[in-house]
Design a protein around this nucleic acid. Structure first.
Lengths: 131, 131
DNA sequence: TCAATAGTTCATGAATCCGGAACTAATGAA
DNA sequence: TTCATTAGTTCCGGATTCATGAACTATTGA
């Protein structure tokens, strides 16, 4: 098993970062890793936004986040611990990650609101019996 | 020929924006569109960063920028005029586009510096005869 | 040494990307 | 009107990338 690759800070590219974060599953994974104080292992993500994600797919997603320079993965015993590299990335591209996370937050809020209002409408149509 | 699609502001997604800007050719196209005061037509991009881009590929790139919500394309006579939708996007996701363009600027500067120093080194090796 | 757990790699079908050839739409000249 | 020109789009093939189940590797503990 070849060792995990972590790009050095000057090898991190904007394109790589944007590509890594242009996938909804990977953004939620990254948001969780950033939000949690403690390092996150893979199994914490077997379900992302109500969708089951196979282990092999997760592994690929972690690889892309890692090779984009967004996270650092270290083996601790039998499991992997993933922590964000926000601070480093922010040194090279100030404000970028923050802006993306804020935008993602705005969009999540909008989606939740849209979902709620759709559910309300559907409940109205069904005569009060919501999902 | 089906009409051009422009998403309404609330249909613009962070994923779409990031995906559109995660390609080096598309970023430079977008940077140019933002920088130029006058609308840009397709032919202005037949060469992007010293690389010839076929018309069909350009057309696809414009489509992706357009459907992500980054630009607005309007036919004026025989040619197309493309203008950025920065202001609108910034209303929905404040600071996002700006942060990406700034990061891209930092990276371009770094690349130019690296290229220059590589050329210098190569010139030294070749005994003063640069490329 | 064997079983269990956590994650990676491999193989393959699906989806996407690139670019040349053919097409369409607007304009202007004959 | 008809034809030529210009500007861009669409179509289709090959190349690349993506998703995922199956097989594999590494670590720990019994």
């Amino acid at each position: 098993m070849r060792p995990l690759l972590h790009p050095s800070i000057e090898d991190i590219t904007v394109e790589g970062l944007l590509h890594a974060l242009s996938d909804p599953v990977r953004v939620s994974m990254f948001v969780d890793i950033v939000a949690q104080a403690c390092p996150q292992n893979c199994s914490n993500f077997l379900v992302v936004s109500d969708r089951a994600i196979p282990k092999s797919t997760l592994s690929q997603h972690f690889k892309i986040l890692r090779e984009a320079g967004l996270i650092r993965s270290e083996r601790h015993g039998v499991e992997m611990q993933n922590v964000s590299r926000c601070t480093e990335v922010d040194e090279r591209f100030p404000g970028l990650i923050r802006a993306i996370l804020v935008a993602h937050g705005i969009q999540s809020k909008d989606e939740a609101r849209a979902k709620k209002s759709a559910a309300k409408k559907s409940a109205k149509r069904a005569g009060g019996a919501g999902p």
